[in-house]
Simulated scan of single mutants.
Amino acid sequence: MAGGLSGRRAFLGGLLSAGLTPALTWADAGSPAFLSAAVTSDGRYVLCGIDAALRVRFEVPLPARGHAAAAHPSRPEAVAFARRPGRFALVLDCVSGAQKAMLQTPEGRHFYGHGTFSADGSLLYTTENDYEAGRGRVGLWDVTRGYIRLGEWDSGGIGPHDIERLPGTDTLIVANGGIDTHPDSGRAKLNIPTMRPNLAYLDQGRIIEIAELPPELHRNSIRHLAVAPDGAVAFGMQWQGDGPVAALAGLHRRGSEPRLVHAPAPEMRALAGYVGSIAISRDGATIAVTSPRGNTLQCHDARSLTFLEAYELTDVCGVVKAGTGFLATSGVGQLVALANRAPVRTAQTALRWDNHLISV
């Protein structure tokens, strides 16, 4: 844990010894604005909290490589997910660094690296694979009772990856990537010719809407999501077909067809068929996508869905809305803040940042 928190921890320890139990908040963990998994210079896996000034506020150990995390909406607690296909997710106290619980999938399931809390923080939803049935699931975990498993819902498709909530609701959006996998085959993709990725909207386990891509893009695996304040859902994709692809990002609003982001051919080639993360700005005006394979971050107009700018960033992947723009992370240790579609601040760390950056 970061040294700047030692005084605060000593203060809290004094209150506890006096018999007082104050409710902890994210301020007690150094007021992080973002979470990201990383690898340290000596090869340790950690989950980090990063504040708005791009300072690393804490490092909590992980047993293996992390992927994404979910931040509890009110208390300094995070769930760190293993890189898929993973069978564990750790519940971490971000003040003390202690492991509070380990979530393990039931027999025949594995995690896909993402999850989200309900609006009140009482439930955790996780994307999972029922690999014998070849069907996606959403796992339900009761936070108030120590993260016991309550059950599961159908995800509405195959290969669910990212999961988010519509603002101010508990309506879930699931990115069903469409790719069937099985642990016995490692990360092999078993159904590329018959893929059918989609966005599925769930309300209390009931599938209330499914949005699919045009048939000619059925090999465009929908992987990652970002939700605008007005409920528009930006989605990033990874192309499993041959030759070039017309689009790797899009925008969807409930009740309408998905709309695709268009970019000039050189910019599309620069993405190398792979969007690693996606974000949408606080005002909903700009979409950012990253490609670690292409070493590029691109910004697009969320209204016209046209290309705006591109920035060369080595091994960039994590991106999230921050201030009036975005914050991006890279596998070579960089933290890059962008405003008005231009880099305004950069911090270099000794950490190799992993795939995703999550808002607290």
Rank of each mutant, 00 (worst) to 15 (best):
D28Y: 00
D28C: 03
G30I: 03
G30A: 02
P32I: 09
F34W: 12
F34L: 12
F34D: 10
L35F: 11
S36K: 12
S36N: 15
S36Q: 08
A37K: 07
A37G: 14
A38K: 08
A38T: 05
A38E: 09
V39R: 12
T40M: 14
S41W: 06
D42P: 02
R44T: 11
R44G: 11
Y45N: 10
Y45V: 11
Y45P: 06
Y45R: 08
V46I: 11
L47K: 01
C48V: 15
G49I: 07
G49C: 09
G49E: 00
G49R: 03
I50M: 10
I50L: 10
D51N: 15
A52Y: 01
A52N: 09
A53T: 11
A53R: 05
A53E: 03
A53M: 11
L54D: 02
R57L: 02
F58A: 00
E59N: 06
V60A: 13
V60W: 01
V60H: 01
V60D: 00
P61G: 04
L62W: 02
L62C: 05
P63K: 13
P63I: 10
P63N: 11
P63T: 14
P63V: 11
A64K: 12
G66L: 09
H67L: 14
H67Y: 14
A68W: 14
A69L: 10
A69N: 04
A70N: 11
A70F: 13
A71Y: 01
A71L: 07
A71Q: 04
A71M: 08
H72F: 06
H72S: 05
P73W: 01
P73M: 07
S74H: 15
P76K: 10
P76V: 05
E77Q: 15
A78M: 05
V79H: 06
V79C: 11
V79Y: 07
V79A: 13
V79I: 06
F81C: 03
F81H: 07
A82P: 01
R84P: 00
P85G: 11
P85H: 12
G86V: 05
